[in-house]
Amino acid sequence: MAIMMEVPGADGLGEAVDALRRWQQDGSPWQLHPGDLGWFWRSGAEATAAALRIWRRDGRILAVGLLDGADLLRLTTAPDVRQDEELARRLTEDVITPERGVLPAGKVAIEAPKDALLQDLLPEHGWRLDEPWTPLRLDLTEPVQDPGVRIEVIGAEQGHVHAAVLRASFDKSAFTTERWHAVASGLPYADARSLVAYDDRGDAVAAVTVWSAGEGKPGILEPMGVHRDHRGHGYGRAITIAAAAALRELGSSSAAVNTPSSNVAAVATYRSAGFEALAENRDLARG
């Protein structure tokens, strides 16, 4: 049977999340994680479903893509079909053809695992390597160190605190308490925790959300931010250590994060928390 692409309804989100959970493996190249869908859920379940693309063959999900904005497709596949030529060619045709409803014409980019055959096919159609990103990883076999500051796990009644810190951490952020509750209502949040770090005066200074993919699988940090009024005091390192500890409690085998290589400060923060910088990866871009 031919490979078919679909846009799932909100009732089909669970199937996509489950597939992404199954596909997470330590040692695999950076790929779309259920936590990425969880963070996108801040726009609501309907918007998340509309941004998803699923490819199937004989009923089996082979690939899942998330339109993270109008011009970026974040895509991964089941590990055993990364070199499947039929899938790679179908993905290529769908990606390069605006009428297919995956990516529009003009300047666009795609994030896909480095070992996917798609990485070899798109350059044949004029796509080029984009800016480098640095994935970082911390093994969670052993307990992590104490973060050295007070950390709280944020529940529904404190969602406004987490939202306020994130809003103060990123320029032009529109992350509201309502959006925090939207994230917390999403299916992937069953394997997630929101954390806030406090200074000695009791001020909320840093925040992070961590996402597990299940017992024995890698988890991710998405997003992590330090309040602009409290930078330069090691709070980024502290909240990152706390994030790793939370993922270990959730059963994750490792903690991972992916950041632009140009963000030298962020890379340094994660490394100071014990994360190891891995080989850079690059999106493929057109236009």
Results as ranks from 00 to 15, higher is better:
88 A>S: 15
16 A>Y: 08
209 T>A: 14
101 G>H: 12
287 G>E: 04
202 G>Y: 14
55 W>T: 02
206 A>I: 09
150 R>G: 03
153 V>E: 11
84 D>V: 13
255 A>V: 01
196 V>C: 05
113 P>F: 10
82 R>Y: 03
100 R>M: 13
191 D>K: 13
266 A>G: 11
206 A>N: 05
106 G>S: 13
21 R>W: 02
38 G>R: 01
121 L>D: 14
151 I>G: 03
55 W>A: 02
169 S>R: 06
100 R>W: 01
173 S>Q: 05
277 A>G: 07
278 L>P: 01
72 L>K: 07
262 S>K: 07
223 P>V: 10
179 R>V: 00
107 K>P: 15
163 A>G: 07
56 R>M: 08
134 T>I: 06
236 G>I: 03
60 R>H: 08
129 L>T: 10
243 A>Y: 01
93 E>G: 15
72 L>Y: 06
257 V>C: 03
165 V>I: 08
166 L>R: 13
106 G>V: 13
227 H>M: 04
79 P>A: 05
120 D>R: 12
197 A>G: 08
271 R>P: 07
134 T>F: 02
120 D>S: 13
221 L>N: 01
114 K>I: 08
148 G>I: 11
247 L>R: 00
60 R>S: 10
285 A>I: 12
98 P>W: 10
125 H>I: 04
175 F>I: 01
142 E>G: 02
59 G>D: 06
192 A>I: 00
199 D>K: 13
8 P>T: 10
196 V>A: 06
210 V>I: 11
165 V>M: 09
203 D>R: 15
38 G>C: 04
249 E>D: 14
148 G>W: 06
269 T>N: 11
150 R>L: 05
201 R>S: 15
107 K>T: 15
53 R>H: 11
222 E>K: 01
272 S>G: 12
164 A>Y: 02
151 I>N: 04
64 V>M: 07
67 L>A: 14
129 L>C: 06
39 W>P: 00
106 G>N: 10
262 S>E: 13
50 A>E: 07
213 A>W: 10
17 V>K: 05
11 D>R: 15
30 W>Y: 10
144 V>M: 08
72 L>S: 13
30 W>F: 13
267 V>K: 04
98 P>R: 08
265 A>Y: 07
281 N>H: 11
244 A>E: 03
125 H>T: 05
194 S>C: 13
286 R>D: 01
255 A>W: 01
187 L>Q: 05
75 L>W: 04
130 D>W: 12
208 V>F: 00
88 A>V: 07
64 V>I: 14
78 A>C: 05
44 G>V: 09
261 S>Y: 02
138 L>Y: 03
226 V>E: 02
158 Q>K: 11
101 G>S: 09
287 G>K: 06
218 P>H: 04
118 L>R: 04
172 K>I: 03
241 I>Y: 01
280 E>V: 02
257 V>G: 01
34 P>G: 07
192 A>P: 02
145 Q>S: 14
278 L>R: 14
74 R>V: 15
126 G>R: 02
197 A>T: 08
165 V>D: 03
